[in-house]
Lab assay of single mutants.
Amino acid sequence: LSEQDFVSVFGITRGQFAALPGWKQLQMKKEKGLF
């Protein structure tokens, strides 16, 4: 994903996403169907 695509999918930047705890990252990926 490009940075723009990432933001459009998750609503946050890669940096903000990386700062989230692992379980939260997994939850967001599952919600978006990316896992």
Rank of each mutant, 00 (worst) to 15 (best):
residue 1 L to Y: 01
residue 1 L to A: 06
residue 1 L to N: 11
residue 1 L to C: 07
residue 1 L to E: 15
residue 1 L to W: 11
residue 1 L to T: 14
residue 2 S to I: 14
residue 2 S to Y: 03
residue 2 S to L: 10
residue 2 S to G: 11
residue 2 S to M: 02
residue 2 S to T: 07
residue 3 E to W: 05
residue 3 E to M: 03
residue 3 E to D: 14
residue 3 E to A: 07
residue 3 E to T: 11
residue 3 E to N: 15
residue 3 E to H: 06
residue 3 E to R: 03
residue 3 E to G: 05
residue 3 E to Q: 08
residue 3 E to S: 09
residue 3 E to K: 04
residue 4 Q to L: 13
residue 4 Q to V: 13
residue 4 Q to M: 13
residue 4 Q to D: 02
residue 4 Q to F: 12
residue 4 Q to P: 11
residue 4 Q to N: 06
residue 4 Q to I: 15
residue 4 Q to H: 07
residue 4 Q to Y: 01
residue 5 D to S: 12
residue 5 D to Y: 01
residue 5 D to P: 01
residue 5 D to A: 00
residue 5 D to K: 10
residue 5 D to Q: 08
residue 5 D to W: 00
residue 5 D to C: 00
residue 5 D to R: 09
residue 6 F to W: 09
residue 6 F to C: 14
residue 6 F to N: 00
residue 6 F to M: 06
residue 6 F to D: 01
residue 6 F to T: 09
residue 6 F to V: 00
residue 6 F to K: 02
residue 6 F to G: 00
residue 7 V to E: 14
residue 7 V to T: 10
residue 7 V to P: 06
residue 7 V to G: 06
residue 7 V to C: 08
residue 7 V to K: 05
residue 7 V to S: 14
residue 7 V to I: 12
residue 7 V to L: 14
residue 7 V to F: 12
residue 7 V to D: 11
residue 7 V to R: 10
residue 8 S to A: 14
residue 8 S to C: 12
residue 8 S to T: 12
residue 8 S to V: 10
residue 8 S to N: 06
residue 8 S to L: 08
residue 8 S to W: 04
residue 9 V to H: 13
residue 9 V to L: 10
residue 9 V to P: 01
residue 9 V to F: 04
residue 9 V to Q: 11
residue 9 V to C: 02
residue 10 F to S: 05
residue 10 F to Y: 13
residue 10 F to C: 06
residue 10 F to L: 05
residue 10 F to P: 01
residue 10 F to R: 03
residue 10 F to M: 06
residue 10 F to T: 05
residue 11 G to A: 03
residue 11 G to T: 02
residue 11 G to K: 04
residue 11 G to D: 01
residue 11 G to P: 01
residue 11 G to M: 00
residue 11 G to W: 00
residue 12 I to N: 03
residue 12 I to D: 04
residue 12 I to V: 11
residue 12 I to H: 01
residue 12 I to K: 06
residue 12 I to C: 08
residue 12 I to G: 04
residue 12 I to L: 11
residue 12 I to Q: 00
residue 12 I to M: 14
residue 12 I to A: 04
residue 13 T to E: 11
residue 13 T to C: 07
residue 13 T to D: 07
residue 13 T to F: 05
residue 13 T to Y: 13
residue 13 T to V: 02
residue 13 T to K: 06
residue 13 T to S: 08
residue 13 T to W: 01
residue 14 R to E: 12
residue 14 R to S: 09
residue 14 R to Y: 12
residue 14 R to M: 12
residue 14 R to I: 08
residue 14 R to G: 06
residue 14 R to C: 11
residue 14 R to W: 05
residue 15 G to A: 15
residue 15 G to E: 15
residue 15 G to I: 14
residue 15 G to Q: 14
residue 15 G to N: 12
residue 15 G to R: 11
residue 15 G to C: 10
residue 15 G to F: 09
residue 15 G to V: 11
residue 15 G to W: 05
residue 15 G to K: 15
residue 15 G to H: 13
residue 16 Q to P: 05
residue 16 Q to A: 09
residue 16 Q to H: 09
residue 16 Q to V: 04
residue 16 Q to F: 06
residue 16 Q to T: 09
residue 16 Q to K: 12
residue 16 Q to S: 08
residue 17 F to H: 00
residue 17 F to W: 04
residue 17 F to S: 04
residue 17 F to V: 05
residue 17 F to Y: 00
residue 17 F to Q: 05
residue 17 F to R: 02
residue 17 F to D: 03
residue 17 F to M: 08
residue 18 A to K: 15
residue 18 A to D: 15
residue 18 A to S: 08
residue 18 A to T: 10
residue 18 A to C: 11
residue 18 A to Q: 12
residue 18 A to I: 11
residue 18 A to N: 15
residue 18 A to V: 08
residue 19 A to G: 10
residue 19 A to H: 10
residue 19 A to I: 03
residue 19 A to Q: 05
residue 19 A to E: 13
residue 19 A to F: 08
residue 19 A to M: 09
residue 19 A to P: 01
residue 19 A to N: 12
residue 19 A to T: 07
residue 20 L to C: 00
residue 20 L to H: 03
residue 20 L to I: 00
residue 20 L to D: 11
residue 20 L to W: 00
residue 20 L to N: 08
residue 20 L to S: 06
residue 20 L to R: 02
residue 20 L to Y: 11
residue 20 L to A: 02
residue 21 P to W: 02
residue 21 P to T: 03
residue 21 P to H: 02
residue 21 P to S: 08
residue 21 P to C: 04
residue 21 P to L: 03
residue 21 P to M: 01
residue 21 P to D: 02
residue 21 P to N: 03
residue 22 G to K: 14
residue 22 G to F: 10
residue 22 G to S: 11
residue 22 G to E: 14
residue 22 G to I: 09
residue 22 G to V: 13
residue 22 G to M: 11
residue 22 G to Q: 13
residue 22 G to H: 14
residue 22 G to L: 12
residue 22 G to P: 14
residue 23 W to S: 11
residue 23 W to M: 11
residue 23 W to Q: 08
residue 23 W to F: 08
residue 23 W to T: 08
residue 23 W to G: 08
residue 23 W to R: 08
residue 23 W to K: 12
residue 23 W to V: 11
residue 24 K to E: 10
residue 24 K to S: 06
residue 24 K to G: 03
residue 24 K to P: 03
residue 24 K to V: 07
residue 24 K to I: 10
residue 24 K to Y: 01
residue 24 K to D: 10
residue 24 K to Q: 12
residue 25 Q to H: 07
residue 25 Q to C: 00
residue 25 Q to K: 06
residue 25 Q to T: 05
residue 25 Q to Y: 00
residue 25 Q to M: 03
residue 25 Q to F: 05
residue 25 Q to D: 01
residue 25 Q to N: 04
residue 26 L to F: 09
residue 26 L to A: 14
residue 26 L to V: 14
residue 26 L to K: 14
residue 26 L to H: 10
residue 26 L to Q: 14
residue 26 L to M: 10
residue 26 L to Y: 09
residue 27 Q to S: 09
residue 27 Q to R: 09
residue 27 Q to T: 03
residue 27 Q to C: 04
residue 27 Q to N: 02
residue 27 Q to F: 04
residue 27 Q to G: 06
residue 27 Q to P: 02
residue 27 Q to K: 12
residue 27 Q to E: 14
residue 27 Q to V: 10
residue 27 Q to H: 14
residue 27 Q to A: 10
residue 27 Q to W: 05
residue 28 M to Q: 00
residue 28 M to E: 00
residue 28 M to I: 02
residue 28 M to P: 00
residue 28 M to C: 01
residue 28 M to G: 00
residue 28 M to S: 00
residue 28 M to A: 00
residue 29 K to Y: 08
residue 29 K to T: 12
residue 29 K to V: 13
residue 29 K to P: 03
residue 29 K to E: 15
residue 29 K to A: 09
residue 29 K to I: 08
residue 30 K to H: 10
residue 30 K to R: 13
residue 30 K to M: 14
residue 30 K to Q: 13
residue 30 K to Y: 13
residue 30 K to N: 14
residue 30 K to A: 14
residue 30 K to V: 11
residue 30 K to L: 09
residue 30 K to E: 15
residue 31 E to C: 04
residue 31 E to K: 07
residue 31 E to R: 03
residue 31 E to W: 01
residue 31 E to H: 02
residue 31 E to Q: 06
residue 31 E to M: 04
residue 31 E to A: 09
residue 31 E to T: 01
residue 32 K to A: 13
residue 32 K to I: 02
residue 32 K to H: 03
residue 32 K to E: 09
residue 32 K to N: 14
residue 32 K to V: 11
residue 32 K to S: 13
residue 32 K to D: 01
residue 32 K to L: 12
residue 32 K to P: 10
residue 32 K to R: 14
residue 32 K to F: 03
residue 33 G to L: 06
residue 33 G to A: 09
residue 33 G to W: 02
residue 33 G to M: 05
residue 33 G to S: 11
residue 33 G to Q: 15
residue 34 L to D: 15
residue 34 L to C: 15
residue 34 L to N: 13
residue 34 L to V: 10
residue 34 L to I: 15
residue 34 L to Q: 14
residue 34 L to R: 11
residue 34 L to E: 15
residue 34 L to F: 15
residue 34 L to W: 13
residue 35 F to K: 00
